[in-house]
């Protein structure tokens, strides 16, 4: 169409120029936000590393002997505990009132905080179950991962991340149950089945809407079934330890 173009005149020069400058200023704002995003990403990376090394440590539960279990779990919790100062750094970068922005809602800010928090919850809940046969409450989990204190500002462990993180741990348990049998640890599968059963009952109390939490919840019943199947196999062969209250 260029051949149809008229000889340019300056007739309407002012309006287009302002359009140009408006766009330029918007683009520069985008740039500022992108820098912040990059800084946050970099600040979260070391926490991500901690989360991964805790998960790796806990992964050894599947092959290590029962006597080593508590040492593995304590080491994992120790690793997770190092996150606190790192969260403080992340909190400092975050503009006031924008935790959720960084957390998940905004596509441009959909990086790390949520996934890392979930992964940390998974490791904490896993270790605490192995050590104390309990489900760690959200508040305690937040404290262990260093998100419970005032210094971390607006950073917080959301209910969603906690609940998803716990399901992440339950997803690990059927495998552990099977490996325990291989290692001739017949008490652990029974303990696991009871635990998963309790968790499943608790999650059933929640009114879930059709989101990721709901889908993850649906996965729980398969985990429960697999854990129960292991106990069934053991009971059938008279290998399960006698129930404490029998």
């Amino acid at each position: 169409m260029a051949d149809l173009a008229p000889v340019p005149t300056s007739a309407s020069a002012s309006a287009p120029t302002s359009v140009d400058s408006i766009l330029t200023s918007v683009i520069s704002q985008l740039e500022t936000e992108q820098n912040l995003r990059k800084q946050l990403r970099e600040a979260i990376d070391p926490i991500d590393d901690l989360a991964r090394s805790a998960a790796t440590e806990l992964n050894r539960l599947h092959s290590a002997g029962a006597s080593e279990h508590s040492r593995i779990c304590e080491r994992a919790l120790e690793t997770v505990g190092k996150a606190h100062p790192l969260w403080i750094e992340v909190g400092k970068l975050l503009p006031k009132g924008e935790f959720y922005r960084a957390d998940r809602s905004r596509p441009r800010y959909n990086f790390a905080i949520s996934p890392v928090a979930r992964s940390l919850v998974t490791s904490i809940a896993f270790a605490r179950f192995m050590l104390h046969d309990e489900l760690v409450p959200a508040f305690t989990a937040a404290n262990i991962m260093g998100l419970g204190q005032d210094e971390t500002g607006e950073l917080q462990l959301t209910a969603d991340d906690y609940l998803l993180g716990v399901i992440g741990m339950v997803n690990e348990l059927p495998r552990l149950s099977i490996n325990a049998v291989t290692a001739q640890n017949f008490a652990l599968p029974v303990k696991i089945a009871a635990f998963v059963n309790d968790i499943f009952a608790s999650y059933s109390m929640l009114n879930l809407r059709n989101d990721i939490l709901r889908r993850k919840f649906d996965s729980l019943k398969y985990d429960l079934k697999r854990c129960e199947d292991v106990v069934y196999d053991l009971t059938l062969r008279g290998l399960a330890p006698a129930p404490a209250n029998a």
């Binding site: 009871a194 059963n197 106990v231 404490a244």
Partner: peptide, 12 residues
């Protein structure tokens, strides 16, 4: 199945 579950349920 229920029996198996019961086996794991102590008072604790």
């Amino acid at each position: 199945m229920a029996d198996v579950l019961m086996a794991g349920s102590s008072s604790a």
